[in-house]
């Protein structure tokens, strides 16, 4: 990695960005490679995150972009501590949560919410919509009645008659809005959104994104938004982080990064997006 590329990849202490809610330093994570496990002894490890330094400013939406295999989902799962890193620190509001055990994490979970990529698999098929939303509320002692679930549904633009439905009775976009309702009902401080629109068609995608943007502003949420689609990130996010093979290639305010991408990978990612406009030269490069 040359020096020029790195110039923007370290958080700049002198910038006027608000104080970070999540602050990650020296994050490394590896998985055992079961496919190449020798007959005896431990499997070799594949390094997925190779030293990540990253700040998520409070009240902002940070987009995390990269190709599949770049480690973006793994990074996200470390932020909400579904995964624990090998080394490195994850400061959430000043507290290092990188190696906390499940019991110590539980009181923090209310503030570390997540919206999943596949809403079909992330909503329990045996539970009704209102139960899905109410269960976390009950666990954190924040009520958990049907009335509160209906209020959360209302915030995501779904009527009270959705409360009694099962997830398989909803369309993809509606399911994803239930996923959002479940996360925001807890009034968390941080939400991770992992590829939440990649399975939706354009209209549902626009609906979900508009909704998320409005809610984030209203509730002053800090959001990490993982996506492979730079167009979506450009519309939704304040900042963008480009990940490649487990390393941060560049990061900065969206306007800056999109106006003058520093890394070749970012330029390739941008050039690969088919914009909804005629362009006879799109294929030439």
């Amino acid at each position: 990695m040359n020096a020029q590329l790195n110039s923007r990849s370290l958080p700049d202490p002198s910038s006027t960005a608000p104080a970070p809610l999540v602050s990650i330093r020296g994050l490394r994570l590896s998985f055992p490679d079961q496919a190449n496990k020798p007959l005896f002894g431990a499997a070799p490890r594949i390094e997925v995150l190779k030293g990540i330094d990253l700040d998520l400013p409070a009240g902002q939406i940070t987009g995390i972009v990269g190709e599949s295999g770049s480690g973006k989902s793994t990074l996200g799962r470390v932020m909400v501590r579904l995964l624990a890193p090998d080394t490195g620190t994850v400061l959430f509001d000043g507290q290092d949560i990188a190696q906390l055990d499940e019991a110590a994490l539980r009181p923090l979970r209310r503030d570390l919410q997540m919206i999943f990529q596949d809403p079909m698999s992330s909503l329990n098929p045996r539970h009704r919509v209102w139960q899905i939303i109410a269960a976390p509320l009950r666990r954190f002692g924040l009520g958990g009645t049907r009335v509160e679930a209906v209020a959360a549904l209302d915030k995501v633009g779904l009527g009270a008659d959705f409360a009694e439905r099962f997830p398989h009775e909803l369309s993809g976009g509606q399911r994803q809005r239930v996923g959002i309702a479940r996360a925001i009902a807890l009034e968390p401080r941080f939400i991770l959104a992992d590829e939440i629109v990649s399975g939706l068609d354009v209209s549902s995608q626009a609906q979900v994104l508009t909704l998320l943007k409005t809610l984030a502003r209203e509730m002053n949420l800090t959001l990490a938004f993982i996506s492979h689609d730079l167009s979506v990130i450009r519309h939704l996010c304040d900042r963008v982080v480009v990940l490649y093979h487990g390393e941060i290639l560049e990061q900065g305010p969206v306007a800056e990064v999109f106006a003058a991408p520093q890394s070749e990978i970012t330029r390739t990612l941008l050039a690969a997006i088919p914009l909804p406009e005629l362009d006879a030269h799109w294929f030439d490069d």
């Binding site: 689609d229 167009s231 990130i233 450009r234 999109f258 914009l275 909804p276 406009e277």
Partner: peptide, 12 residues
């Protein structure tokens, strides 16, 4: 409407 629903980084 379909075109309007498609995001574009070039035209934020």
């Amino acid at each position: 409407a379909l075109i309007a629903a498609t995001p574009s980084y070039a035209d934020p």
